[in-house]
Amino acid sequence: MSELIDALAIAGKAALGFQAIFFALLAIGINVQFGYTGLLNFGQIAFAMLGGFGIAISVSKWGLDFWVGVAIGLAAAVVLALLLGLPTLRLRADYLAIVTIATAEGLRLLFRSVSATPVTNGTRGISDFNGQFLELAPWPTNERYRLLGTSWSGGELWVALVGWLLVALACLLIWALMRSPWGRVVRSIREDEDAVRALGKNVYVYKMQALVFGGILGALGGMVYAVGTGSAIPDQYQNANTFLAYAALILGGAARVLGPVVGAMILLFILQFADTGLRALIDNGVIPEGLLTSTDVAQIRFVLVGLGLMLLLVFRPQGIFGDRREVMLDAR
């Protein structure tokens, strides 16, 4: 029983930690692009990588101020969004998907390549760039604190606090945008571009704005992740994360302000709970060694998430927050 409570507490920490913030920000960005505007960005992780490495390279390679690094990371994300959008947003939605997925993988390979090693440290990555940020914490960052049954370091708490503030700010911004006429145009583009064009709106500009805005949110997510782990390694930014963020978005409900946030928390909670819980069950001998060993757990937990998603799509296709009527309209 105590193991169960422990597993719950550890999973709870995961749902509140910087990784959940990372996925939440990625998913909020995807929500702007896919949920509201209908753009298929399959390379959100590339924006996150530019955000993380923007800080890492600026601070430890170029010796710049931390906040200048943040600005550089955001600027890099904007440039990437423009580069991806310029050639593809006039075309059908599929082209953006193809280009973004290829770019995400290509950029990661570029960052870990030997020729990029002088700048990115190649596969080893960059560390020691978050000192200036941690110094801002109002409490000592190297002490540990008991919270909700688990222990947090002061640094973790500080990153989580700032991260959740960022998430709250992003949600507020999206709430304000989506109830405005801008949000109406963007949602109309998701429904039918040509109808919007025929009514005198420059669809291309709106799509570009959505792509850039979502990319900036992705970059912020990457920054939280880099500062939280204290390192920026190219292989941390596998494109599988983009699809986990999509899973979080669908779990919570697309085109809803809080959908991606709650989705990300639940995703991280399930992953961590399955991990700790299954390991405890194996250690106690409840699950026989022949059926499952603790080395399988890392994979099995994703199977469980997949199963959960399937059940969700069957019984609640709109996600947790979605409007069933709205989702069902597509079936017509």
Partner: peptide
Amino acid sequence: FQLTKALSRLTVLQNMLL
């Protein structure tokens, strides 16, 4: 348009305001 382009997941009023 020949094939009507109502914006399905917007309300009628939102369609008009667009």
